[in-house]
């Protein structure tokens, strides 16, 4: 498994990385899931990255980037045709994690890396009900890059896979 690319979140006016995937709950609850191409990048097994915003204490999905199996670009309109710009994430209850500061330990799996602190935002049906910060430690000296990142990934070019498919 490879460390996974984070979702993007606009929180208090700043764009940060979010190590949670609320859209996967939408699909688990029966929402229509487009056929994302989940094989083109080992750091993106879910096949898409979502752009989110917390505005007035509510979680919104405001963008989506991904590739479809047929080769087209996936957008928000592929999932929510009548709401192509902003979708209220009313289905989501749980905690989203926003890593902050420098990296303490890199784990090449999921969202497993540890950062100096984590901002946890608790939501109930898409509405923020609590926030808390957990301090995980401090990076001394030079070590540890700032902000969330993926150390390595393998990208499979679409052209070569298409040739393989045609050969079959």
């Amino acid at each position: 498994m490879t460390a996974q690319i984070a979702e993007s979140l606009i929180y208090e006016g700043k764009e940060v990385s979010m190590c949670s995937t609320p859209l996967s709950d939408y699909f688990a609850f029966g929402g229509k899931r487009p056929n994302f191409d989940t094989w083109y990048c080992t750091a993106l097994w879910r096949g898409y990255t979502g752009k989110w915003e917390i505005l007035d204490g509510r979680l919104y999905l405001i963008g989506l980037h991904g590739q479809l199996e047929g080769g087209g670009e996936a957008t928000l309109a592929d999932i929510f045709p009548d709401y192509p710009d902003r979708v209220f994430a009313h289905w989501y209850s749980g905690t989203i994690r926003v890593p902050q500061g420098r990296q303490i330990e890199y784990v090449h799996m999921g969202f497993g890396s540890t950062y100096e602190s984590d901002l946890f935002i608790d939501l109930e049906r898409g509405v923020v009900v609590a926030t808390k910060i957990r301090h995980n430690g401090t990076v001394e000296g030079e070590g540890g890059p700032e902000g969330y990142g993926v150390g390595a990934m393998t990208i499979f070019p679409r052209a070569s896979r298409t040739e393989e498919d045609e050969a079959k």
């Binding site: 609850f29 029966g30 229509k32 505005l55 709401y83 209220f88 009313h90 289905w91 049906r125």
Partner: peptide, 24 residues
Amino acid sequence: KVFDPLGAVPDLPFGHLNAAWREF
């Protein structure tokens, strides 16, 4: 029923998941 002040959800039971609910 779901309400959103920005109108980013349909005014239906279970909002964006209404189709899944009806199917259920």
